[in-house]
């Protein structure tokens, strides 16, 4: 007889996520996985690799490139695509590129609306994807706590929080009409700590921006941002100072706050996270616009 011990919490979460990914591959005709290059995306990619081994991941990865990501993120993305041999689709909003959207000039709201939300919608429409796998977690933000794992979107990619499908056991309703889609969140039930612990245990590669290092940073709209290229206005760049910092989330460099830190290893990052007193999203400028803003963005089609 085999030892009937229960699986550890991470192994239970891992099995649940793999179940979800396989369900997507089995029930949808044209799924895609969002790849944002951050730690959650890295975990998702790792789970997908496991779910379909020894075969290849049976769906492409989609990166919506806002053109303002950290340089290192793009290098990391292309390297991982090669190492793991996955199909990578990259999309940038041509209208935004034409308008030369610049978060320093147009502000975070316009930049996010055009390069991220609109760019995402374009990429989804162009790909005709019926299932879009994302790395959102329920512990990140209050409106996410109520979202289903298989979250229905109408043909305008909109979420209706008051009219969600009941979701019971691990039985997911994958039915949609033509033009509609489902956003699927396989790591819904993971917390930030779970993600870090799993990365540590499974030794999953992540961009070095998560680790503390001397970097040029400058105060901007109440947050410390890194000078990643010379598109940053000169008067800001002039004020930049070298500080030992790291990032708790990765996004567009002008919108992503750095924190002062000495954490150079995964255990040190986890230690810092457990002892810290502010939540992960604090470093993201986009949530602060207004209370409940994430909820509004989600209704409009932002992930």
């Amino acid at each position: 007889m085999i030892d009937k011990k229960r699986l550890t919490h991470l192994k239970q979460l891992e099995a649940e996520s793999i179940h979800i990914l396989r369900e997507v591959a089995a029930e949808f005709t044209n799924p895609v996985m969002m790849y944002s290059i951050g730690k959650d995306s890295s975990v998702m990619l790792h789970l997908a690799m496991k779910a379909f081994a020894p075969g290849k991941v049976p769906f492409p990865l989609l990166h919506v490139d806002t053109k303002w990501k950290f340089k290192e993120m793009i290098e990391f993305r292309d390297r991982r695509a090669k190492e793991l041999g996955f199909d990578l689709v990259v999309h940038s909003n041509p209208r935004g590129e034409e308008m030369d959207i610049n978060p320093f000039v147009h502000g975070s709201k316009v930049h996010t609306d055009i390069m991220k939300t609109e760019g995402l919608k374009q990429a989804l429409n162009a790909g005709g994807y019926d299932a879009v796998i994302g790395g959102a977690r329920r512990d990140e933000e209050k409106s996410r706590a109520k979202e289903r794992i298989f979250s229905f979107r109408d043909k305008h990619h909109r979420w209706d929080p008051k009219n969600q499908r009941p979701e019971l056991w691990n039985i997911y309703n994958t039915r949609i009409h033509k033009g509609e889609s489902v956003r699927v969140f396989p790591i819904s039930n993971w917390t930030e700590l779970d993600v870090w612990q799993y990365i540590y245990l499974e030794q999953i590669p992540i961009p070095s921006l998560y680790f503390a290092k001397e970097r040029p940073v400058v105060e901007y709209e109440g947050t410390k941002i890194m000078v990643d290229d010379d598109r940053m206005p000169e008067e800001l760049r002039k004020k930049a100072k070298m500080e030992k910092v790291r990032f708790r989330t990765l996004g567009c460099y002008p919108l992503t706050g750095a924190i002062n830190s000495d954490a150079e290893t995964l255990p040190e990052i986890i230690r810092e996270m457990l002892l810290s007193t502010s939540s992960e999203r604090e470093g993201r400028l986009i949530d602060k616009d207004q209370e409940g803003s994430m909820e509004l963005k989600k209704i409009e089609g932002y992930f």
Binding site: I2, K4, K11, A15, I18, R22, H46, K50, A53, P54
Partner: peptide
């Protein structure tokens, strides 16, 4: 039997002797 949880980037076919609920 392959327990998906045992798969690594280096070893995509780790065979197991047995498996139990709720393993994938």
């Amino acid at each position: 039997i392959i327990n998906a949880g045992d798969v690594t980037e280096a070893n995509r076919e780790p065979y197991a002797e047995e498996a139990y609920a709720p393993m994938a």
